[in-house]
Amino acid sequence: MQEQPEPPLAPGLTARVELTVTDTDTAQAVGSGDVPVLGTPRVLALAEAATVAATATRLPSGSTTVGTRVELEHRAATPVGRTVAARAELVKVDGRRLTFEVIVTDGNEVVATGRVERALVDRQRFVERAVRAS
């Protein structure tokens, strides 16, 4: 009996990305507040970067993923100079819909938790459709 190949995108794929917080990452800089700590939009961007990295080497040729839905709880402030890490795990594949659980930490402290949904799309068709719509 021949082994079935593992599907390219299956639950369990993970990735971790890091960011050392600079002045350009603060809430003041990105317009999401007036305090000099890591801004929520940058936390979200880091979480999404981890989801992209989790599937980057497993995508079918000509495909990409696009973000479709996000739930994010930003729980702790992170000052400039600290390094945060986002870890994403693909927890569900439903056709072209991919669901990730994400945790962002600063050492042992949980900075944010969330869920990110992405859709698997044909890169060229997606871009062509977006250009036509504009």
Results as ranks from 00 to 15, higher is better:
Glu48Asn: 11
Glu71Asn: 10
Pro5Arg: 13
Gly31Val: 03
Val37Arg: 03
Val66Ile: 07
Val66Pro: 08
Gly67Met: 06
Thr22Cys: 07
Leu38Thr: 00
Leu9Cys: 11
Arg87Gln: 15
Ala77Asn: 11
Gln28Trp: 11
Thr64Asp: 11
Thr20Gln: 11
Val93Ala: 06
Ala49Phe: 09
Phe100Pro: 00
Ala56Asn: 10
Val104Gln: 03
Pro8Val: 01
Thr78Tyr: 06
Leu59Val: 02
Arg97Lys: 11
Thr22Leu: 13
Leu59Asp: 01
Pro60Leu: 06
Ala56Phe: 15
Leu72Trp: 09
Asp23Pro: 09
Phe100Gln: 01
Thr105Glu: 10
Ile103Arg: 13
Pro36Leu: 12
Val66Thr: 09
Thr68Ile: 00
Thr68Ser: 08
Pro8Ala: 05
Gln28Leu: 15
Asp34His: 12
Thr14Arg: 14
Val66Gly: 05
Thr40Tyr: 04
Leu44Gln: 13
Glu48Leu: 03
Val80Asp: 00
Ala27Ser: 12
Leu9Phe: 12
Asp23Val: 14
Arg16Leu: 04
Leu59Asn: 01
Val35His: 05
Thr105Lys: 06
Val70Gly: 12
Val70Glu: 12
Val104Gly: 02
Ala86Ile: 00
Leu98Gln: 10
Arg42Gln: 04
Ala49Leu: 11
Thr105Trp: 09
Val21Met: 07
Thr57Arg: 11
Thr20His: 07
His74Ala: 00
Thr14Met: 10
Glu101Leu: 07
Thr78Val: 09
Ser63Glu: 06
Glu6Asp: 12
Leu19Asn: 10
Asp23Gly: 11
Pro36Asn: 14
Pro5Ala: 15
Ala53Arg: 07
Arg87Thr: 15
Lys92Thr: 05
Leu98His: 08
Glu71Ala: 09
Ala56Trp: 15
Arg75His: 13
Asp106Cys: 05
Val21His: 09
Ala56Glu: 14
Pro7Met: 12
Thr20Lys: 10
Thr83Tyr: 02
Glu71Ile: 04
Val52Gly: 10
Ala85Pro: 06
Ala77Gly: 13
Arg96Met: 03
Ala15Asp: 05
Thr65Glu: 07
Asp106Val: 00
Ala54Val: 02
Pro5Trp: 14
Gly95Ala: 06
Thr57Lys: 11
Arg75Leu: 12
Gly95Tyr: 04
Val80Leu: 09
Asp106Thr: 01
Pro8Ser: 05
Thr65Asp: 10
Pro11Gln: 03
Arg69Met: 07
Arg16Val: 03
Arg82Cys: 02
Ala50Lys: 02
Pro60Arg: 08
Gly33His: 04
Ala77Leu: 04
Thr24Gly: 06
Ile103Gln: 13
Arg69Gly: 05
Ala88Ile: 00
Thr20Asn: 05
Val84Cys: 09
Thr65Trp: 06
Leu38Ile: 00
Glu48Thr: 05
